[in-house]
């Protein structure tokens, strides 16, 4: 537990400072190898708080908040810019460049996993490996593709978000929450989305559900480790198989049973679990595990 928190000093001038500040970048840990931990939408870097203590001794961890998260300044969020996932990938690269990182392991949860893949296409040299947790290239069902979400479910989701948005704009209390929705998959997915400011939430939800990154998967040449919960409500297990077969580089799929805990797809458990319970952190994050890649 004995690790030091170090704020990155202003070395690059003002703009650099504000970029790192805007994303609340934090670097912890004493190890040689760099690990970038990237949270999914609706959450923030505190998602990793139970994971960090197990990694700080062996790795240097880069934690940050993605733009649009509840912890960033909503003023900095540009609706136009963040209407595609590419913008988030650009942000990620900008942060890594700012920190002058030459090589890192990227851990991305949920949508961040795909953001990492996008970034790696642009700059494959920076990423030595990508670990995705519950990632999905497309959430909507399609012909020959099962993403887990039907258009009807989404319409309901957008409806609820819109009503929150309207209430928010007119000065009332937005009271709709993810749990009000019928579909369990949408519930699970949207739970955190409702924690974002209503206007941003609506925009982010649209961005996520409009995204279809299936076509870029073959271009990803960086080795990928795909972590997936067997009981994930929002991302079906078949998606991980799809990812595995479509990704351009070496990859390995690991479906983690969430045994011993009755919350089917608690992402925290998943994140904590794969390091804590199974004590796989070494294997997953060090070079030895490369031999496992197919």
């Amino acid at each position: 537990m004995d690790y030091s928190v170090m704020w990155f000093e202003n070395q690059q001038g003002r703009s650099a400072m504000s970029l790192l500040d805007a994303h609340n970048v934090r670097i912890v840990g004493a190890g040689e190898e760099l690990v970038v931990l990237s949270h999914g939408f609706g959450t923030d870097q505190s998602l990793w708080k139970h994971v960090v203590p197990h990694l700080v001794d062996n790795y240097r961890l880069v934690l940050f908040d993605m733009m649009g998260a509840g912890t960033t300044n909503a003023e900095d969020f540009s609706f136009l810019r963040y209407s595609t996932l590419h913008a988030y990938a650009d942000d990620l690269l900008a942060i890594l460049d700012e920190l002058e990182i030459e090589s890192c392991i990227f851990v991305g949860h949920s949508v961040s996993g795909m953001v990492g893949c996008l970034a790696s296409i642009e700059r494959p040299d920076i990423f030595s490996k990508i670990i995705t947790i519950s990632a999905s290239p497309r959430y909507l069902n399609d012909i020959n593709y099962f993403g887990g979400f039907e258009q009807d479910d989404l319409n309901q989701l957008f409806g609820a978000m819109q009503s929150n948005f309207k209430a928010w704009v007119s000065g009332f209390a937005p009271l709709a929450v993810g749990d009000d929705l019928d579909s369990v998959a949408v519930q699970e997915f949207s739970r955190t989305l409702f924690n974002i400011r209503p206007d941003i939430a609506l925009s982010v939800a649209k961005t996520i559900f409009q995204s279809d990154l299936r076509c870029i998967l073959p271009q990803v040449s960086v080795p990928c480790h795909i972590l997936q919960s067997s009981k994930d409500l929002a991302v079906p297990v078949v998606v991980s198989d799809y990812l595995s077969s479509s990704l351009g580089g070496k990859n390995i799929v690991e479906v983690l049973p969430t045994e011993g805990c009755d919350r089917g797809t608690c992402l925290h458990k998943l994140v904590g679990g794969f390091i804590l319970n199974r004590n796989k952190s070494e294997m997953l994050l060090t070079a030895q595990s490369h031999s496992k890649f197919c």
Partner: peptide, 18 residues
């Protein structure tokens, strides 16, 4: 209760808070 995520059939804390 469950914050941020919870198993199917259960509801997270935001609903309870409401």
């Amino acid at each position: 209760g469950y914050a941020l995520s919870c198993p199917g059939g259960n509801l997270d804390l935001s609903l309870w808070e409401r």
